Computed example of a mutant assay.
Amino acid sequence: MKGPLFYSKILLFGEHGINKGSKGLSIPYNFYNGGLKLTDIDTDAAKKSNASLRGFTVYLEKLQTEEPGLVTFDIDALKRDADAGMYFDSSIPQGYGIGSSGALVAAIYDQYAKDKITVLENLTQEKLLKLKKIFGRMESYFHGTSSGLDPLNSYLSIPILINSAESIEATGIPMQNLEGKGAVFLLDSGIVKETAPMVQIFMESLKDQGFRTMIKNEFLKYTDACIADFLNGDAKGLFGNIKQLSKTVYHNFKPMIPEGFHELWQKGIETNDYYLKLCGSGGGGYILGFAPDIDRAKESLKGHKVEVVYQF
């Protein structure tokens, strides 16, 4: 292994809304991880990853030339390692909305950036925003545009609260209670997705005045309320607001919900067994769920793959 492992992340709240002024809350998810590797380079997966890494290297060389004040890499070392077959060995499912490209970006920055901001420093607002900007530019290679939040979360491996575009902070989340019935879970849609088309759908929708009004008056309001409830450990408030958020997403973000899950989405709202929301940009991958009683939710979702992330 060349360098440390970096974890996947889950954007609990803020998908699509962060760019429009909502708050966001992102947490590391240690179940999946990845790291740069220089051994076992002859497998198909290693070769595919290496080819992608070579393309990324070309992009990073161009990036540091175009924005010299932003970030500088040891490109010679990166090229040398890429030529030797280096790849990103990862258990993070790609196209599932939990930060596979973010972990790769974090690993490359950690290993090859010059004058890097390290996790051990006093992470001031200025440093966090600088990191977020660097990571956003780096990850744009994979998605067209990026907030930089996924790599930031992966790099720091701590929960991050986004207050606004100019204000982010490391935050604490309430302790897990493994005896608790309440839970956050991942529901596997079985569909690999691409982020860019989902972002495109959202941007197109914003041209509609009615959609913009809904974002401002409903989507952002419920997102911010869910974050406050979650951080304050207010389960009752959280489930009230997450139900409203789930309804808002169901009625206004249909193209981003895999078709086979429309009924399941509605069933959760009607039965109150669970509430679903987009995980990342939507379109497939994982769907995020919140359940007042995880055993009841599992029973209600029988036949579907449910992965518990956090219990409270």
Rank of each mutant, 00 (worst) to 15 (best):
S157A: 15
S157I: 03
S157V: 08
I158S: 12
P159H: 04
P159C: 03
I160G: 00
L161H: 14
I162L: 13
S164N: 06
S164L: 00
A165I: 08
S167E: 13
I168T: 08
A170C: 12
G172F: 04
I173G: 12
P174I: 09
Q176V: 06
N177Q: 13
L178I: 09
L178C: 05
E179S: 14
E179Q: 15
E179G: 07
G180R: 11
G180H: 11
G182P: 00
G182R: 14
F185I: 11
L186K: 07
L186Y: 07
L186P: 05
L187Q: 03
D188Q: 11
S189P: 11
G190T: 07
I191C: 01
V192M: 08
V192R: 13
V192L: 05
K193W: 05
K193S: 15
E194T: 10
P197F: 12
P197Y: 10
P197E: 10
M198F: 07
Q200E: 13
Q200N: 13
I201S: 05
I201N: 06
I201W: 04
F202W: 10
F202A: 00
F202M: 05
F202L: 04
M203P: 00
E204N: 15
E204R: 14
S205N: 14
L206C: 15
K207E: 12
D208A: 09
Q209P: 02
F211D: 06
F211S: 01
R212V: 06
T213G: 01
T213S: 09
I215E: 00
I215M: 14
K216W: 00
K216M: 10
N217E: 15
E218V: 01
F219A: 09
F219H: 11
F219K: 04
L220W: 01
L220Q: 11
K221E: 11
K221D: 04
K221H: 11
Y222G: 01
T223M: 00
T223H: 00
D224G: 08
A225W: 02
A225S: 08
A225L: 06
A228V: 13
D229H: 14
D229V: 06
F230N: 03
L231T: 02
G233P: 02
G233E: 07
G233H: 09
G233N: 07
D234A: 05
A235F: 10
K236E: 13
K236G: 01
G237K: 08
L238C: 05
L238W: 06
F239P: 09
G240E: 09
N241K: 12
N241M: 07
N241C: 05
I242D: 00
I242W: 02
K243W: 01
K243H: 09
Q244G: 02
Q244P: 00
S246M: 10
K247F: 08
T248L: 01
T248W: 00
T248K: 00
Y250W: 02
H251I: 05
H251G: 02
H251M: 07
F253H: 01
K254N: 05
K254M: 13
